[in-house]
Design a protein around this nucleic acid. Sequence first.
DNA 1: TTGTATGCGTTATCAG
DNA 2: CTGATAACGCATACAA
Lengths: 338, 338
Amino acid sequence: MKKEVPNIYDIAEFANVSIATVSRVVNGSDKVSEATRKKVLKVIEKFGYTPNVFAQGLGLKTMHTIGIIVPTLADDYMATAVDYLEKGLKRHGYDCILSCSGFELTEKQSKCDMLLSKHVDSLILVGSTYAGNGVDASATDYIREAAKKVPVFIINGNISGENVYATVCEDEAVVCDVTGKMIERGRKNIWFLTDSRSYSSNNKKKGYEKAVERAGLASNVIYVENDIHSVKEQLSGLKDKPDGIIAANDKIAVGAVKYAVSAGLKIPDEIEIVGYNNSILAMSSTPEISSIDNHTAEVCHDTVERIMHNLNDDGYKPSNKITISCNLVCRETTKVSD
Amino acid sequence: MKKEVPNIYDIAEFANVSIATVSRVVNGSDKVSEATRKKVLKVIEKFGYTPNVFAQGLGLKTMHTIGIIVPTLADDYMATAVDYLEKGLKRHGYDCILSCSGFELTEKQSKCDMLLSKHVDSLILVGSTYAGNGVDASATDYIREAAKKVPVFIINGNISGENVYATVCEDEAVVCDVTGKMIERGRKNIWFLTDSRSYSSNNKKKGYEKAVERAGLASNVIYVENDIHSVKEQLSGLKDKPDGIIAANDKIAVGAVKYAVSAGLKIPDEIEIVGYNNSILAMSSTPEISSIDNHTAEVCHDTVERIMHNLNDDGYKPSNKITISCNLVCRETTKVSD
DNA sequence: TTGTATGCGTTATCAG
DNA sequence: CTGATAACGCATACAA
């Protein structure tokens, strides 16, 4: 009962032309007379013909797909990034094969291989986790290996290597700046909270440490779980109380806010809190959290453009590393300077 | 400088066998002697051979991919669902092609067609929006059309049709129950807030109305934007004040909480608020929002299983509609009954 | 401008 | 158990 899908031969036969001509019409070649084009087009329309992508892929060795690897979509930042990427790529006629890898190296590698075996035209790794911790370079070898086959783009992480392209945020600079401003406002005991040792997290940490040390203050980096209540409890368990907190993401910041509230610390008078990613979480909190915006839309847009330049092999040679600036979006958990 | 990818002929030649034998080894046929199998396997290993998926697809008419269409990933519920689906499908050896369609019908249709043209083995539509509003059946015709080619699964929405399978939540029942409990606790002016007229939203509304009418109270359904501040402002602009709010999602609930706080209404004494989806937003809010959990993990898991049964064509005939129960997760915006 | 013939890499059907 | 060979559907170099 299944209706067979028409192929190029059916169209050719019905239109009284050769398959070559049909192919030319489909691919918009200009070497076809208007008359035959119309004729063929009509038959195509009538049959509802679509070229078989497998056959196309076989010959052309591409199916116009991009592989996207992301640790998890259960994270506002990642999910939003994938959303932007997919829309941008589709706009250029590319489809996306998605793979959620988790955070373990072996899984990352295997997902990467699976995607490569599907002959994607390029690979996008979303998130700083793929850049490793900067210490163990072998943890990113699989990426350089993949880059031998297709261009690899990494969002919010930096890896050096042939054919791998990075888009990173100026995390260090912005955190240094934001921390510095807090210090100028008189804060003396600012803590930095993070859940990972990724490339991105380390940069934020560096920015924090630079600002703190420059002011002659003690630095206090606390590693926490990426979970609201864990953060709250962990902080509650400490005797010392901060008068400022920089969190590596908004979820941690929410935990910090809950801690401050439960500890009876007045926000932002007795404690200032800054989140990261400027996600919906920052706005959901009460008080609403001032958060560093890392311009996801821009990052993704740039990445897509560079992929297209790379794939189309036009004159434009994309640079291997692009840096996007960040900025603090002030809400209720920080005081304004001046 | 590019290293050519080895094909089945290379392997056959090097192993001194025919391509047929190589194919048999690759596909685990039992009609191969142990000796040749080992020999071939060794060569495959050495060359790092992987079958070309395009060629496979050409012959087998499938590339083991499932198309996932979602309106947007910038939504916790959808993103989480896609995450579950992808992981589940991969576990069964299927890859996912992702498409973000937005909410407009023409876009939904076109994304659907694009995916079908990629010869996906099945289609998953994530979200109630694909089920239309139940009034204009033609708005879902494209789905039934797609179902003529591949099985279509819809998450959290119900569409009747040959070869289309739905997994829905017991939205009506749970909302009716939750609203009823609120009424039992003495609430007399409960409002229902929603941003859409989707299948799912309508069911929640029905549940609300049923409970309210049963108690002889007035129903008050308010359509809002799906935006925290819009909700807050819209409610602030009203003269009447509710003593209970049921929100169709957590983001709206957050807006409701912010409204209540700004209006000086004590939560939960003077006003109770219930969200939907039990997302991270519910926990980010202060006070933390009681929210209805629609068991996304379970819904997705069931969907994946049914897809596999369908594709594998084993004896098991999946039912066209499965209903998953929901339950309220109590936090700080509701009082406990009894 | 149009048609012919070939390659793309598998799987599957037959013979052997 | 193994090998030759025919699909699978398209793009394209080469002829006409």
